[in-house]
């Protein structure tokens, strides 16, 4: 491989590690993630901080020559957060979030107290979600995730019809969702409709590489390690491709202030990284155990 600007999936010498050793890493990460979520639940009442979509609140996108401090001063209520938008052709744009749901008085305050930028309207975007609407959405989203997860598990069992390889897929998918959730708790990203979409998308994406691995090992003839090697070549490329697309989308959308795309991109990136670990350490070790010991003992 003499080319610098190319990438190859490195060959990993699985034979040097026992199943226990391989599974320990992802399981430990999963345990830490669960611990973070439980801790947050005990302290704040929710495993992940809920964004406006779920907890209620208001958001304004304002175009103004006032500074960030002046924007904070302009409102009776202190804003929850304020983000300046960095995008081509755009200056002096800020996204301001509030816990209040009195949109009318918030826009009035913005229009009265902020300096107008040329002849552009001060309030460019306004939205509010009442607390009761938010809790409705919360229940609906939980139901959606639950149904998606159960549906995915059923499909996994239908595809492979054996317990260990199917449960391996289900466990990795579970971990793929829990790790980004813990990541959100730690980094302070709040749960929004966009992040829920990303979590559901993760269920779909993460299962791809697991199915690929299981398929090569279980449904093909040939040496176990060779099959794993081939599945890894394809699978890692797939995941890296998706990860880079999501990273670019996440960062660009975050700079532009397009929250929906930003949260989908960033959460999918983290989740896919978790998936790399879960597929090639956790799922692999369960598969190897099943192939060399599980079949014999059953």
């Amino acid at each position: 491989m003499g080319y610098m600007a190319t990438f190859d999936v490195p060959e990993f010498d699985y034979t040097r590690y026992s199943n226990r050793q391989l599974a320990a890493v992802p399981l430990a990460v999963l345990a830490v993630a669960l611990l973070v979520l439980t801790g947050s639940f005990l302290v704040t009442g929710t495993p992940v901080q809920l964004g406006m979509d779920f907890a209620g609140g208001s958001e304004l996108t304002v175009q103004t020559t006032s500074s960030e401090e002046e924007i904070v001063e302009a409102f009776d209520e202190e804003p929850e957060s304020i983000q300046s938008v960095t995008a081509p052709d755009t200056e002096n744009q800020y996204i301001v979030q509030f816990t209040s749901t009195d949109l009318e008085s918030l826009t009035d305050q913005a229009e009265a107290n902020l300096a107008q930028d040329g002849d552009v309207d001060i309030v460019q975007q306004e939205s509010t979600v009442s607390e009761s609407f938010g809790s409705q959405t919360q229940q609906t989203a939980l139901l959606g995730i639950a149904v998606a997860f159960v549906g995915m598990s059923v499909i996994a069992f239908l595809l492979f019809r054996t317990f260990v390889p199917s449960i391996a897929i289900v466990v990795s998918a579970f971990s793929d969702i829990v790790i980004p959730l813990a990541f959100m708790t730690v980094t302070g990203i709040s749960l929004s409709l966009g992040t829920v979409a990303a979590l559901l998308m993760l269920i779909g994406y993460s299962v791809d590489s697991d199915i690929l691995l299981n398929n090569h090992v279980l449904r093909r003839q040939g040496d176990f390690y060779e099959s794993v090697q081939r599945a890894t070549q394809t699978g890692v490329t797939m995941t890296i491709t998706s990860m880079s697309a999501m990273l670019v989308m996440g960062v660009a959308a975050w700079l532009f202030g397009v929250e929906l795309l930003a949260s989908i991109g960033i959460i999918l990136f983290v989740g896919l990284a978790a998936d790399l670990m879960n597929t090639y350490m956790l799922n692999f070790s369960l598969l190897r155990w099943y192939k060399f010991e599980g079949i014999r003992s059953s």
């Binding site: 979509d53 959405t137 609906t140 998606a148």
Partner: peptide
């Protein structure tokens, strides 16, 4: 699996 994972969202009224 992707279709199964996404179908609740297509049916439930989760706005965006």
């Amino acid at each position: 699996t992707t279709i199964i994972a996404m179908s609740p969202l297509a049916v439930l009224s989760l706005g965006d």
